[in-house]
Write a protein that binds this DNA or RNA. Sequence first.
DNA 1: TTCCAGGACATTT
DNA 2: AAATGTCATGGA
Length: 319
Amino acid sequence: MTIRQQDMLNFKYEEITGCTLVDVPYAFSYNETLLYLTRSTMECLHHVENRHIYKLIEIEHEPILIEISESDASTIWIRLVDSLPRDRTVWESIVHYVQEWFDLHRDLAPFYHIAANDPLLSKLATDYYGMRIIGVPDLFEALCWAVIGQQINLTFAYTLKKRFVEAFGKPMEWNSRTYWLFPKPEDVASILVDDLKKLQFTSKKAEYIIHIAQLMQQGELSKHALLSSSDFKAIESQLITIRGIGPWTANYVLMRCFRDPSAFPIGDAALQTALKLLLNRSQKPSLDEIKQLFFPWKEWEAYAVFYLWRSLTPVDATP
DNA sequence: TTCCAGGACATTT
DNA sequence: AAATGTCATGGA
């Protein structure tokens, strides 16, 4: 058995068994990860069973179904379900994907330091300790999901996403279950508004998503190009120039895709609900009050929002 | 049935 | 600039 140590990526892999052991940071909760990933039964882009996470990802134009499992407090396993030998660079890409997906490189110490003596965050930070923002690394997916989620309840949003993925994504069968790759811009750039209206998308959302697909297919919009911007604020202002992308969507994508810890989807309906419940109010707080409340959490607004969202999860939802 | 949901945009003051 | 109206559909 050959085991090689990757200094930079903190993982070891075994060429024979096709498994990789990945180090996780000091504050990482596998349980919270599972809880987030199982919050909707309509989710079609990953599957959780017996505390294993299954996801189809594309590495070097090849669909690969990965299985993620908890090992001990400081490691998780990644296994390839087809068990075919893979090149070392492919393994590096897979590990990089998971680290990006679960935000494993983030040092949460500053956030927990703020939370420690904060009247609103201290209990959440303790209750959900180790919870990290689950990302959406693919920009097209992040934008589509954000646009879909505008002004509708999450249940319906998941229904729409499932219809969209099953209509334009790429399926892969394994063990009598279908796994999906999210549609690519080129799969959506040429469809018609009516194709999405059939799936119960509103005309506006259909137009937004098709237009975004066209921009990305033509190379006028890409994650790589945006990442070369001077800062996250520059990315935000570029995103907002696109039709259908307002302040909420831009900040949501900064939070889930670009991993800006200071992204702040202020005005988010669920955020208002969470604060209303936490403050034991009869009415939702105003935008001005939310700004005041968030003042201590500067540069960590995205994490504060994610922990507040988490407070809305039903307590009986144990994975 | 009514209200509203992890908004954006156009129109009117 | 800021307030108001419109879109538009299902979930609870």
